[in-house]
């Protein structure tokens, strides 16, 4: 029987290689797969390109991965946070480059990548500095920008509930980028707070079907980034 579970987060991320492109779920702390990210820091992969909406906070999770010097490029919509200087320091010193993408364009590029769409036209950002160098075309007397689909070697996301085949349900606004990133990652790795046998999740309620998921590992009580930051935690 198909079983995508792995014994722990270390095993779940062991295939990540140097130079890989990763999509990492989360909007702020909601949906951020902190335990998988920490396992990736332990694993040691470097020269990563990371696609994620933000750049983490404090010095845990995604901010810790950046701080550890593993990320050469970020593709995101909002890299600033009130309580972290990790990304700003890396950006200003030129150690991590940034491709800034409007949030909806980022989402649609990920969806397109996962859905086999090479590129699409969007009105977002037309006439702004973020349109510079982009191909434009007019439809119905309005200017649109050509934007390309995004895919990744690996996707790291967090779910509330999974079955052993990788069918997923998320928690509230932690869903955010996870379903589309699961589609766009060649190898999608999930940390789930609860894992059940196939058939235990009502098929009507499944948000991400198993076909988009490759590895599932159990993280029963995932840490909340804001609580770690408030406690002054760092990783490693």
């Amino acid at each position: 029987m198909i079983d995508k579970t792995r014994a722990n987060v270390a095993e779940a991320v062991q295939e990540v290689f140097d130079g890989a492109t990763l999509m990492i779920g989360g909007f702020g702390e909601a949906g951020s797969p902190i335990e998988l990210i920490h396992a990736l820091i332990d694993h040691g992969a470097s020269d990563l390109t990371v696609i994620s909406n933000n750049c983490g906070s404090g010095e845990v999770g995604l901010a810790a991965l950046l701080k550890a010097g593993r990320v050469s490029k970020m593709i995101c919509s909002f890299p600033r946070t009130a309580n972290s200087t990790v990304f700003p320091d890396l950006y200003r010193s030129g150690r991590t480059t940034l491709e800034l993408v409007p949030q909806g364009t980022l989402a649609e590029r990920i969806r397109a990548g996962g859905a086999g769409i090479a590129a699409f036209y969007t009105p977002t950002a037309a006439g702004t500095p973020l349109a510079e160098g982009k191909e434009t075309r007019r439809f119905h007397d309005r200017e649109y920008l050509l934007e390309y689909g995004l895919t990744a070697d690996f996707t790291l996301i967090k779910a509330k509930l999974a079955d052993t085949r990788g069918n997923l349900i998320y928690n509230k606004t932690a869903r955010n980028f996870a379903p589309i990133m699961a589609m766009a990652g060649k190898l999608t790795i999930v940390q789930a707070a609860e894992i059940v046998a196939p058939g235990k999740i009502d098929p009507e309620t499944i948000i991400t079907p198993e076909i988009f998921v490759d590895r599932v590992t159990h993280v029963p009580n995932p840490a909340h980034e804001s609580e770690l930051v408030a406690a002054g935690a760092t990783y490693p």
Binding site: S77, F78, P79, R80, F87, P88, Y91, R92, L98, L100, P102, Q103, G104, T105, T122, P123, T124, A125, A126, T128, L130
Partner: peptide, 16 residues
Amino acid sequence: PDDIPAVGGAMDLVAG
């Protein structure tokens, strides 16, 4: 020149 650019969903909201 030293600002960290961050846009979030603002450009999508005004476009749509």
